[in-house]
Protein backbone atom coordinates (compact mmCIF):
# COMPACT_ATOMS: atom_id res chain seq x y z
CA UNK A 1 0.00 0.00 0.00
CA UNK A 2 1.25 3.45 -0.82
CA UNK A 3 1.58 5.96 1.97
CA UNK A 4 -0.07 9.36 2.05
CA UNK A 5 1.50 12.29 0.26
CA UNK A 6 2.76 14.01 3.37
CA UNK A 7 3.40 17.72 3.45
CA UNK A 8 6.91 18.73 4.62
CA UNK A 9 7.23 19.04 8.34
CA UNK A 10 4.20 16.93 9.08
CA UNK A 11 4.27 13.54 10.68
CA UNK A 12 1.51 10.98 10.75
CA UNK A 13 0.68 8.31 13.22
CA UNK A 14 0.90 4.94 11.54
CA UNK A 15 -0.51 1.83 13.17
CA UNK A 16 1.82 -1.18 13.33
CA UNK A 17 -0.07 -3.05 10.64
CA UNK A 18 0.26 0.00 8.39
CA UNK A 19 -3.47 0.66 8.13
CA UNK A 20 -4.53 3.91 6.56
CA UNK A 21 -6.90 5.83 8.86
CA UNK A 22 -9.25 8.38 7.33
CA UNK A 23 -11.56 10.66 9.31
CA UNK A 24 -14.95 11.64 7.92
CA UNK A 25 -17.23 13.52 10.37
CA UNK A 26 -20.36 11.58 11.27
CA UNK A 27 -22.62 14.62 10.78
CA UNK A 28 -21.90 14.60 7.03
CA UNK A 29 -22.69 10.89 6.77
CA UNK A 30 -26.36 11.71 7.26
CA UNK A 31 -26.29 13.23 3.77
CA UNK A 32 -26.95 10.60 1.14
CA UNK A 33 -24.37 12.03 -1.25
CA UNK A 34 -21.63 11.73 1.36
CA UNK A 35 -22.77 8.22 2.33
CA UNK A 36 -22.49 7.23 -1.32
CA UNK A 37 -19.04 8.73 -1.53
CA UNK A 38 -18.03 6.90 1.63
CA UNK A 39 -19.42 3.57 0.39
CA UNK A 40 -17.72 3.98 -2.97
CA UNK A 41 -14.40 4.76 -1.35
CA UNK A 42 -14.87 1.79 0.97
CA UNK A 43 -15.17 -0.49 -2.05
CA UNK A 44 -12.25 1.09 -3.85
CA UNK A 45 -9.94 1.06 -0.85
CA UNK A 46 -11.00 -1.83 1.44
CA UNK A 47 -7.79 -1.55 3.46
CA UNK A 48 -8.73 1.91 4.79
CA UNK A 49 -10.02 2.19 8.35
CA UNK A 50 -12.66 4.90 8.72
CA UNK A 51 -13.30 7.07 11.79
CA UNK A 52 -16.43 9.19 12.18
CA UNK A 53 -17.24 10.00 15.81
CA UNK A 54 -15.84 12.43 18.33
CA UNK A 55 -13.76 10.90 21.11
CA UNK A 56 -14.83 10.95 24.74
CA UNK A 57 -15.63 14.30 26.34
CA UNK A 58 -12.26 14.32 28.15
CA UNK A 59 -10.57 14.32 24.74
CA UNK A 60 -12.75 17.13 23.39
CA UNK A 61 -11.13 18.83 20.43
CA UNK A 62 -9.53 22.19 20.63
CA UNK A 63 -11.38 24.67 18.47
CA UNK A 64 -9.34 27.80 17.96
CA UNK A 65 -11.61 29.87 15.79
CA UNK A 66 -14.93 31.02 17.13
CA UNK A 67 -17.78 29.86 14.92
CA UNK A 68 -19.78 32.79 16.29
CA UNK A 69 -23.51 32.60 15.79
CA UNK A 70 -23.43 29.61 13.44
CA UNK A 71 -25.96 26.83 13.99
CA UNK A 72 -25.14 23.96 16.34
CA UNK A 73 -24.83 21.29 13.60
CA UNK A 74 -22.19 23.40 11.85
CA UNK A 75 -20.24 23.87 15.07
CA UNK A 76 -20.53 20.18 15.90
CA UNK A 77 -19.24 19.20 12.46
CA UNK A 78 -16.20 21.45 12.82
CA UNK A 79 -15.48 20.01 16.26
CA UNK A 80 -15.86 16.42 15.12
CA UNK A 81 -13.56 17.10 12.16
CA UNK A 82 -10.91 18.63 14.41
CA UNK A 83 -11.13 15.74 16.86
CA UNK A 84 -10.75 13.20 14.06
CA UNK A 85 -7.63 14.95 12.82
CA UNK A 86 -5.74 13.69 15.84
CA UNK A 87 -6.50 10.05 15.00
CA UNK A 88 -6.35 10.00 11.22
CA UNK A 89 -3.78 9.96 8.44
CA UNK A 90 -6.11 12.07 6.34
CA UNK A 91 -9.29 13.99 6.91
CA UNK A 92 -12.09 13.89 4.36
CA UNK A 93 -14.44 16.90 4.53
CA UNK A 94 -16.24 17.26 1.20
CA UNK A 95 -17.19 20.75 0.01
CA UNK A 96 -20.90 20.35 -0.66
CA UNK A 97 -22.15 23.00 -3.06
CA UNK A 98 -25.09 21.49 -4.92
CA UNK A 99 -27.06 18.24 -4.70
CA UNK A 100 -29.65 17.10 -7.24
CA UNK A 101 -29.31 20.46 -8.96
CA UNK A 102 -30.16 22.50 -5.86
CA UNK A 103 -27.88 24.42 -3.54
CA UNK A 104 -26.60 23.55 -0.13
CA UNK A 105 -26.50 26.11 2.67
CA UNK A 106 -23.48 28.50 2.40
CA UNK A 107 -22.00 26.98 5.55
CA UNK A 108 -21.25 23.75 3.64
CA UNK A 109 -19.24 25.75 1.11
CA UNK A 110 -17.04 27.22 3.81
CA UNK A 111 -16.85 24.14 6.06
CA UNK A 112 -13.53 22.69 4.74
CA UNK A 113 -11.90 26.13 4.99
CA UNK A 114 -12.97 26.59 8.59
CA UNK A 115 -11.75 23.11 9.47
CA UNK A 116 -8.44 23.90 7.76
CA UNK A 117 -8.08 27.23 9.59
CA UNK A 118 -8.66 25.43 12.89
CA UNK A 119 -6.18 22.67 12.11
CA UNK A 120 -3.51 25.10 10.95
CA UNK A 121 -3.80 27.06 14.18
CA UNK A 122 -4.10 24.08 16.48
CA UNK A 123 -1.48 23.82 19.22
CA UNK A 124 -1.23 20.05 18.63
CA UNK A 125 1.22 20.44 15.73
CA UNK A 126 2.88 18.69 13.98
CA UNK A 127 0.06 16.07 14.10
CA UNK A 128 -1.89 17.64 11.28
CA UNK A 129 -3.11 15.29 8.53
CA UNK A 130 -3.85 16.48 5.01
CA UNK A 131 -7.37 17.76 4.52
CA UNK A 132 -9.11 16.38 1.45
CA UNK A 133 -12.14 18.37 0.40
CA UNK A 134 -13.52 17.16 -2.93
CA UNK A 135 -16.10 19.40 -4.53
CA UNK A 136 -19.57 17.90 -4.73
CA UNK A 137 -21.49 20.04 -7.19
CA UNK A 138 -24.27 18.06 -8.84
CA UNK A 139 -25.72 20.45 -11.36
CA UNK A 140 -27.96 17.99 -13.18
CA UNK A 141 -29.35 14.45 -13.15
CA UNK A 142 -25.99 12.96 -14.24
CA UNK A 143 -24.03 15.02 -11.77
CA UNK A 144 -23.75 12.39 -9.05
CA UNK A 145 -21.48 10.15 -11.11
CA UNK A 146 -19.21 13.00 -12.15
CA UNK A 147 -18.81 14.53 -8.71
CA UNK A 148 -18.22 11.16 -7.03
CA UNK A 149 -15.61 10.29 -9.61
CA UNK A 150 -13.91 13.63 -9.08
CA UNK A 151 -13.99 13.13 -5.32
CA UNK A 152 -12.42 9.68 -5.59
CA UNK A 153 -9.71 10.91 -7.92
CA UNK A 154 -8.89 13.73 -5.52
CA UNK A 155 -8.66 11.29 -2.64
CA UNK A 156 -6.52 8.83 -4.58
CA UNK A 157 -4.25 11.60 -5.82
CA UNK A 158 -3.64 13.06 -2.38
CA UNK A 159 -3.11 9.79 -0.54
CA UNK A 160 -1.52 7.86 -3.38
CA UNK A 161 -3.76 4.86 -2.80
CA UNK A 162 -4.40 2.43 -5.62
CA UNK A 163 -8.08 1.53 -6.15
CA UNK A 164 -8.71 -2.20 -5.87
CA UNK A 165 -11.85 -2.13 -7.97
CA UNK A 166 -12.97 -0.56 -11.21
CA UNK A 167 -14.09 2.95 -10.14
CA UNK A 168 -17.05 2.81 -12.53
CA UNK A 169 -18.34 -0.28 -10.72
CA UNK A 170 -17.94 1.32 -7.31
CA UNK A 171 -19.73 4.43 -8.50
CA UNK A 172 -22.65 2.50 -9.92
CA UNK A 173 -23.15 0.53 -6.76
CA UNK A 174 -22.71 3.52 -4.51
CA UNK A 175 -25.33 5.56 -6.31
CA UNK A 176 -28.21 3.32 -5.19
CA UNK A 177 -30.11 5.12 -2.42
CA UNK A 178 -31.40 3.22 0.57
CA UNK A 179 -35.03 2.13 0.47
CA UNK A 180 -37.40 2.81 3.37
CA UNK A 181 -40.89 1.48 3.94
CA UNK A 182 -43.71 4.02 4.19
CA UNK A 183 -46.21 1.71 5.90
CA UNK A 184 -47.76 2.97 9.17
CA UNK A 185 -48.79 0.06 11.39
CA UNK A 186 -49.97 0.38 15.02
CA UNK A 187 -50.84 3.83 16.37
CA UNK A 188 -49.74 5.50 13.18
CA UNK A 189 -46.85 7.51 11.81
CA UNK A 190 -45.21 10.73 12.81
CA UNK A 191 -43.37 12.38 9.93
CA UNK A 192 -40.10 14.02 10.90
CA UNK A 193 -38.95 16.86 8.69
CA UNK A 194 -35.65 18.68 8.72
CA UNK A 195 -32.06 18.48 7.55
CA UNK A 196 -30.83 14.88 7.42
CA UNK A 197 -28.33 15.45 10.22
CA UNK A 198 -31.14 16.79 12.40
CA UNK A 199 -33.16 13.66 11.74
CA UNK A 200 -30.27 11.23 12.20
CA UNK A 201 -27.91 12.64 14.83
CA UNK A 202 -29.04 11.84 18.38
CA UNK A 203 -27.16 14.75 19.89
CA UNK A 204 -28.71 17.20 17.43
CA UNK A 205 -32.29 15.90 17.58
CA UNK A 206 -32.35 15.30 21.36
CA UNK A 207 -33.39 11.67 20.69
CA UNK A 208 -36.84 12.77 19.63
CA UNK A 209 -37.31 9.83 17.20
CA UNK A 210 -36.68 7.43 20.09
CA UNK A 211 -39.18 9.25 22.33
CA UNK A 212 -41.82 9.02 19.61
CA UNK A 213 -41.20 5.33 18.96
CA UNK A 214 -41.33 4.55 22.69
CA UNK A 215 -44.91 5.90 22.64
CA UNK A 216 -46.01 3.45 19.97
CA UNK A 217 -45.75 5.63 16.89
CA UNK A 218 -43.63 4.87 13.88
CA UNK A 219 -41.38 7.65 12.57
CA UNK A 220 -41.07 8.35 8.89
CA UNK A 221 -38.88 10.85 7.05
CA UNK A 222 -38.79 12.39 3.56
CA UNK A 223 -35.83 10.11 2.75
CA UNK A 224 -38.40 7.33 2.26
CA UNK A 225 -39.84 9.21 -0.71
CA UNK A 226 -37.88 9.77 -3.93
CA UNK A 227 -36.56 13.31 -4.04
CA UNK A 228 -37.93 13.84 -7.55
CA UNK A 229 -41.43 13.39 -6.20
CA UNK A 230 -40.87 15.78 -3.28
CA UNK A 231 -39.30 18.25 -5.66
CA UNK A 232 -42.41 18.19 -7.86
CA UNK A 233 -44.57 18.87 -4.81
CA UNK A 234 -42.32 21.70 -3.65
CA UNK A 235 -42.45 23.27 -7.10
CA UNK A 236 -46.18 23.88 -6.59
CA UNK A 237 -45.11 26.75 -4.35
CA UNK A 238 -42.60 28.20 -6.83
CA UNK A 239 -43.78 31.09 -8.95
CA UNK A 240 -42.21 32.56 -12.10
CA UNK A 241 -38.53 31.93 -11.55
CA UNK A 242 -38.79 32.36 -7.78
CA UNK A 243 -37.58 28.89 -6.94
CA UNK A 244 -36.73 27.81 -3.44
CA UNK A 245 -33.12 27.04 -4.32
CA UNK A 246 -31.83 25.02 -1.37
CA UNK A 247 -31.83 21.24 -1.72
CA UNK A 248 -32.98 20.38 1.79
CA UNK A 249 -35.48 23.23 1.97
CA UNK A 250 -37.16 21.65 -1.08
CA UNK A 251 -37.07 18.23 0.53
CA UNK A 252 -38.65 19.59 3.71
CA UNK A 253 -41.31 21.61 1.89
CA UNK A 254 -42.09 18.71 -0.46
CA UNK A 255 -42.11 16.39 2.56
CA UNK A 256 -44.62 18.60 4.37
CA UNK A 257 -46.96 18.60 1.38
CA UNK A 258 -46.49 14.85 0.85
CA UNK A 259 -47.19 13.87 4.46
CA UNK A 260 -50.14 16.21 4.81
CA UNK A 261 -51.78 15.49 1.45
CA UNK A 262 -50.41 12.49 -0.46
CA UNK A 263 -49.86 10.15 2.47
CA UNK A 264 -51.40 11.84 5.53
CA UNK A 265 -49.75 10.93 8.80
CA UNK A 266 -50.87 11.38 12.41
CA UNK A 267 -48.60 14.34 12.99
CA UNK A 268 -45.61 16.21 11.58
CA UNK A 269 -42.64 17.40 13.62
CA UNK A 270 -40.25 19.87 12.02
CA UNK A 271 -36.87 19.51 13.74
CA UNK A 272 -34.75 22.63 13.44
CA UNK A 273 -31.65 23.96 15.09
CA UNK A 274 -31.53 27.48 16.46
CA UNK A 275 -30.26 30.01 13.93
CA UNK A 276 -30.61 27.75 10.90
CA UNK A 277 -31.07 30.32 8.15
CA UNK A 278 -32.96 28.07 5.76
CA UNK A 279 -35.30 26.60 8.33
CA UNK A 280 -36.07 30.07 9.68
CA UNK A 281 -37.71 30.94 6.36
CA UNK A 282 -39.26 27.49 5.95
CA UNK A 283 -40.94 27.82 9.33
CA UNK A 284 -42.76 30.87 7.97
CA UNK A 285 -43.80 29.00 4.82
CA UNK A 286 -44.89 25.79 6.56
CA UNK A 287 -46.88 27.75 9.15
CA UNK A 288 -48.68 29.59 6.33
CA UNK A 289 -49.43 26.31 4.52
CA UNK A 290 -50.68 24.80 7.75
CA UNK A 291 -53.01 27.73 8.41
CA UNK A 292 -54.42 27.58 4.88
CA UNK A 293 -55.07 23.85 4.95
CA UNK A 294 -58.70 22.79 5.40
CA UNK A 295 -57.76 19.64 7.31
CA UNK A 296 -54.28 20.33 8.63
CA UNK A 297 -52.17 17.53 10.00
CA UNK A 298 -50.97 18.59 13.48
CA UNK A 299 -47.61 20.32 13.13
CA UNK A 300 -44.97 20.90 15.80
CA UNK A 301 -41.84 22.93 15.15
CA UNK A 302 -39.15 21.89 17.60
CA UNK A 303 -36.00 23.98 17.99
CA UNK A 304 -33.78 21.28 19.44
CA UNK A 305 -31.03 23.31 21.06
CA UNK A 306 -33.44 25.68 22.81
CA UNK A 307 -33.94 23.10 25.55
CA UNK A 308 -31.45 22.85 28.36
CA UNK A 309 -32.60 19.47 29.71
CA UNK A 310 -33.75 16.27 28.08
CA UNK A 311 -36.82 16.27 30.37
CA UNK A 312 -37.99 19.47 28.67
CA UNK A 313 -37.81 17.77 25.30
CA UNK A 314 -39.66 14.68 26.55
CA UNK A 315 -42.44 16.84 28.04
CA UNK A 316 -42.80 18.82 24.81
CA UNK A 317 -43.04 15.71 22.64
CA UNK A 318 -45.36 13.91 25.05
CA UNK A 319 -47.71 16.90 25.06
CA UNK A 320 -47.82 16.80 21.27
CA UNK A 321 -48.45 13.04 21.24
CA UNK A 322 -51.19 13.44 23.89
CA UNK A 323 -52.94 15.83 21.51
CA UNK A 324 -52.63 13.30 18.69
CA UNK A 325 -53.93 10.49 20.93
CA UNK A 326 -57.03 12.59 21.58
CA UNK A 327 -57.71 13.28 17.92
CA UNK A 328 -60.11 10.99 16.06
CA UNK A 329 -57.75 10.31 13.14
CA UNK A 330 -54.70 9.63 15.28
Amino acid sequence: MNTAAAAPGRSFRRLPEDIMNIGLPEELLHLEAVRSLHQGLGRLYPEVRWHHSQPRRSEAPEVIISEGDACFPFKKTIRTSCSLAGRADALLVPRLVRLDGYLMCPNFRGLPDLVALNLERSSSEPRRPPLISPLIDEQGPGGRRGSLKQAMEALSGTLGLEPQLDPALALTEASNPEDQSTACPGKGCIALLGHPYMLGDKRLNSRIPEIIRSRGYRTITPESVPFARLDRLASERDYYAKTLYWRFARETLGGYIYFSREQPVSGIIFLVSFNCGLDALLRVELAALHRRSEQPVPLLTHVSDEHTQQEHVVTRIEAFLDILDGLPHA
Binding site: I65, S66, E67, G68, R109, G110, L114, N275
Partner: peptide
Amino acid sequence: SCMPETNAAAVLSA
Protein backbone atom coordinates in the same frame (compact mmCIF):
# COMPACT_ATOMS: atom_id res chain seq x y z
CA SER B 1 -27.75 34.34 11.87
CA CYS B 2 -26.53 35.57 8.45
CA MET B 3 -25.13 32.35 6.93
CA PRO B 4 -22.39 33.71 4.62
CA GLU B 5 -21.19 36.39 7.03
CA THR B 6 -20.97 33.92 9.93
CA ASN B 7 -18.26 32.20 7.91
CA ALA B 8 -16.57 35.53 7.21
CA ALA B 9 -16.65 36.38 10.93
CA ALA B 10 -14.97 33.08 11.81
CA VAL B 11 -12.28 33.62 9.18
CA LEU B 12 -11.70 37.23 10.25
CA SER B 13 -11.31 36.17 13.87
CA ALA B 14 -8.36 34.06 12.70
